[in-house]
Design a protein around this nucleic acid. Structure first.
Lengths: 249, 249
DNA sequence: ACGGTTTTTGACCAATTGAGCGTTTATTTT
DNA sequence: AAAATAAACGCTCAATTGGTCAAAAACCGT
């Protein structure tokens, strides 16, 4: 990773989120704390961002949006390392499906510069992808207000037109018997179709999701690869499976 | 491998990826580090790329691009009053089409609480609409990176399924002979279809857009209602038309 | 084979990086 | 509010990597 490349990605990040955390950057950019600190220091000297304790923030933004901000900070490091592990599954030339959600959103910066085409149901993810210059196709349909995901019959119909090399799916709960589940049946249906259209599919779920059950099943445990962050925090009934990966960064 | 051939491939690479690494180039071009360095040095001297430690990068990337940020701050007050005038055209129960763009985005807060369903091609507008709790349907298709608008055949096909009470369209230029125009033919096509599917259609254009011409026509002047902000700043050949409205707030 | 160019090689210097460590700042506990 | 704990900071340093330069070798069309 080139120094300048790193700095640009930091700037893109900061442009989009308002703030960046050093801890996250070390994961996203695969660099040491020292390096990130140096980068931030130099960028701050250039007046391109403002250095603050633990990270940096946009230079002129007077008001921060606490709404998304807060949600994004929950389990960020876990999500970032899961995303990094997932992004390593992506190859140049791939056509991939990216689910809506904050975990999958973390993958977006890691796709920058790669020659991939991404199909997504997440409105915000689509916007992010466009910012990062990734070729993006958005599915059409009704927007679910809370998660800003496209759902419904129209979306699943469009999905059927595509074949993906891999699908990256977020899940609310992972249970040993009931598999991967999520509260909204319509969202579950969309995810299920996406998995069906993919040669390989990955469920992204941090340790806090394990052992719970939500209403609608996305997929049984065995049919996908699960990527998570911390084996130590998960019951061994999961960790002994062979289709579960621990992200180690 | 000829020198010029090498340089050409370096430039193609950089154009495509934004950055190149010397280590990668030595492999791809089967040349030594020194050779690549010399090539890069010469190309840099010609101003065709910027040399950085470990490689090179595209000359004018993210760093100095004006981006959406600047465009959004320009003419905000004008856009706000235009949007307010446009929003008054919306009735409860309507199904409306909302174009992508910063002007139409200003309408979103004004739709809050109304019983309308909005169909949009703008990714950011869709996100905004969802935030404001407006029933939203997003068209699917390829995302145009710069404007984050959905374009292409898939989008126009979906549009054909809907009939709108009104369509609110942004335009780059309004000319007395050439009508409303915009630079991208694909975007123009989408807007045109939306207008065709609407009982009433409104072009939102602030005073600075008048008198110019862009490449692709959206609609002739007579076929829509034009909403603008300041009659005083516009040539009288426009203001005497009967399908132009001045937003006064 | 010859003159000019391109490429390789090796030596030396500069830049970048990641880890360690004592200090400062923030957060939690008492 | 004060103390204890945990993060984050800035600093130095060794190691790696990239950069420059010049001489030698290989290449090319004539």
């Amino acid at each position: 990773m080139l120094t300048e490349e790193r700095k640009q990605r930091i700037l893109t990040d900061i442009e989009h989120n308002g703030t960046v955390h050093i801890r996250d950057l070390t994961v996203q950019l695969a660099a040491s704390e020292s390096t990130i600190r140096r980068d931030l220091g130099e960028l701050a000297k250039e007046g391109l961002l403002r250095r603050v304790h633990g990270g940096a923030q946009k230079i002129s933004s007077l008001r921060d949006e606490p709404g998304v901000q807060e949600k994004a900070t929950a389990h960020t490091t876990a999500k970032a390392s899961i995303a990094r592990c997932a992004a390593e599954m992506v190859q140049n030339g791939d056509l991939i499906f990216l689910d809506a959600g904050t975990t999958t959103a973390q993958m977006v910066p890691l796709l920058q510069g790669k020659d991939v085409t991404v199909v997504t149901t997440g409105v915000d993810n689509a916007s992010l992808l466009a910012d990062y210059g990734v070729k993006t196709i958005m599915l059409g349909g009704t927007i679910k207000p809370l998660t800003k995901a496209i759902i419904g019959a129209a979306a699943t119909q469009q999905l059927a037109q595509y074949r993906f090399n891999s699908a990256f799916i977020g899940a609310n709960s992972v249970h040993i018997d009931y598999g991967c589940t999520t509260p909204d049946p319509e969202e579950a249906a969309t995810k299920r179709v996406a998995i069906g259209q993919s040669a390989a599919s990955f469920i992204l779920a941090d340790a806090s999701k394990f052992g719970n059950v939500s209403f609608a099943q996305i997929a049984p445990l065995a049919s996908t690869t699960i990527i998570t962050d911390d084996f130590a925090a998960i019951d061994s009934e999961f960790t002994k499976l062979d289709n579960i990966k621990e992200a180690t960064f």
